[in-house]
Write a protein that binds this DNA or RNA. Structure first.
Lengths: 348, 348
DNA sequence: CTGAAAGCGCTTACAG
DNA sequence: CTGAAAGCGCTTACAG
């Protein structure tokens, strides 16, 4: 590989001059610049970004930690993050943790040694060790589709699950439903509990009575949805509508109903949450609350970009270290949108 | 950030000693090593991988160029690649080209300046400029889910589309079908033309007459499948089976048939290609040819790993340059597997 | 077993 | 406008 020295030697100038020409510094003669550019073409020279990074303490790479890249939800999110960051010249390194806590930690450790400029993270396990690791990070970080644990002062971008759940249940109520069931994710999951809270609060607000028989939680897959629908139907056959806390659960419910020849939305209405590609399939046509993945990804990227710029600038203007000069920007709560398809109908 | 010098100073030894201790060189006393390890803990020191990479000309990062990370097919593939490479200590950088030729080129250029150790690529556009760029790469490369253009001597890992198409059509023929239609991707796509070739050859081999009326090509989406099925049904209403060259097309066909109350598989059988998650949905249950994504990803990773090791070793043993010492390993053609679900039935 | 020195490929004050 | 020198944080012969 030819390097800057080869170019300099070939041109009979110093490496400093070549460097300045390449980096478009103003204080270099037009003619020299032209020659340098020509030599670069001729030798097919590519500056070594590693060396540059070492000296500038800036690598133009961002780490993106995600639970599972083969989950369409996260891959779309990742895509949105990447697109924005790419625009600004950053390369994003996906850390595909595969829901493995050790891999998450390793990724963070890696981010440090590899001198990433910033991190966008969606950790799955927030054990004390991970939190500690994150707290020691010297680089800008933003949580994505997660809430920041209280120990950390780091901004997050997440959808307002509680609000969205309220919207979903309200929608059913406005359609005239009163006997509404809930199929939910594991209770210990933050997302799951927020959506359940939205359900309960909205029901209560409208003074609609409900019982624990109307609620089944514990999973996130189609299979779980199927089982939950089965349970719900046996325990509360009078239900006219179901709020499924994610689309996969909703699809599972739809499946059980199809198998048991209970027609949707004629006999029962279903609303989901996520707006996966699945939801739009001809057989499914699931009304759902959309988690705006592109918007979320973009906002997280933008937030991180701002933090990085703040940091870069504070380096220039002051000698203070990062903690002093940077204020944590505000977190962002994003609203989910109702997507009406054909799985709900007005009652009576 | 504390660096190796801080550790050395604190311990009153030289940086070389610290370096050797960290990297487990044998020639360092047990006691020194212990002290170094302790200091590392104490200072929370993390070696700078950038500096190390610069000097060792090895970054332990692999670039993975994919057309679209939000396509579940590719994200599963990427996942498989990443898992294997991670095992061996490599970090993979996803290059999400979003089917944009410029982004593909930029990614390759980036791979050079950032000194990646190797590349696994699934380029979308193979224009001369891209090919030229690739040909000048000094690092090991493997094509994944693509065939290497003849100008390049680079191994590939791909499924045997032709063979798989033959298997699919054979399956229908063995079921007793003779009036078989084909819904295909754009003809200019290699994959599309191979699958079509498999269809034609197998029909001919069995001396089954077919006409151009039985074939509709040109797209890869559900919508295309719907339109194609519509055309096919009007042009050749006697068809008893359809080979859809990908699952999305198959699903589109299924959708059109459902809308038009033509039952599957009673009135018509459908076989797809890919085995997307969709195919297993209760309403769809599409029999299909599976492209083994995990196997493909693993094999590509393994191949690249071998090439990298060869290169690393040849550096040690000889002074020859890479081209001399390395022989291109053989490409791998992977067999697709028939997944029987409920969209095909024996005739008569 | 350990240290001093050179060097990886760049950038950046500093001096002229 | 240009060059010599120092330095980013490491590793690696070489000498002892």
């Amino acid at each position: 590989m030819t390097n800057i020295k080869d170019i300099a030697k070939h041109l009979g100038v110093s490496v400093s001059t070549v460097s300045r020409a390449i980096n478009n510094h103003s204080d270099v003669s037009k003619e020299t610049k032209r020659q340098v550019m020509e030599a670069i073409r001729e030798f097919n020279y590519r500056p070594n970004a590693i060396a540059k990074g070492l000296i500038q303490k800036k690598t133009f790479t961002i780490g993106l930690l995600i639970p599972d890249i083969s989950d369409p939800f996260f891959s779309a999110l990742a895509n949105a993050v990447e697109e924005m960051l790419f625009e600004y010249g950053y390369q994003v390194v996906y850390g595909n943790a595969n829901r493995n806590p050790d891999k998450e930690k390793q990724f963070i450790a890696n981010a440090i040694s590899r001198q990433f400029d910033g991190l966008i993270i969606t950790p799955d396990s927030l054990d004390p060790e991970l939190i500690h690791l994150i707290s020691e990070l010297q680089m800008p970080v933003v949580f994505l589709r997660r809430r920041t644990p209280k120990e950390l002062s780091i901004p997050f971008v997440d959808v307002d699950h509680y609000q969205a759940a309220c919207t979903a249940v309200n929608y059913l109520i406005e359609l005239g439903h009163k006997q509404i069931g809930f199929i939910g994710m594991p209770e210990k999951s933050f997302t799951g509990s927020e959506r359940l809270r939205g359900f309960k609060d909205t029901m209560n607000k409208h003074r609609i009575v409900w019982g624990t028989d109307d609620i089944v939680v514990g999973g996130r897959t189609i299979e779980h949805g199927r089982d939950a629908m089965d349970k719900l139907h046996r325990r509360s056959p009078e239900l006219t509508a179901i709020f499924a806390a994610n689309d996969l659960l909703g699809i599972g419910a739809l499946e059980w109903l199809a198998v048991n020849r209970i027609s949707v939305p004629e006999e029962i209405s279903i609303i989901g949450f996520d707006n996966l590609e699945y939801a739009d399939l001809h057989w499914i046509q699931l009304t759902t609350m959309e988690q705006p993945r592109v918007e979320m990804g973009n906002r997280a990227a933008r937030l991180l970009l701002d933090m990085i710029n703040d940091k870069d600038n504070s380096k220039e203007f002051t000698a203070h270290n990062i903690e002093d000069s940077s204020v944590v920007p505000p977190s962002e709560l994003i609203e989910a949108r109702l997507i009406e398809r054909k799985s709900c109908r007005p009652l009576g």
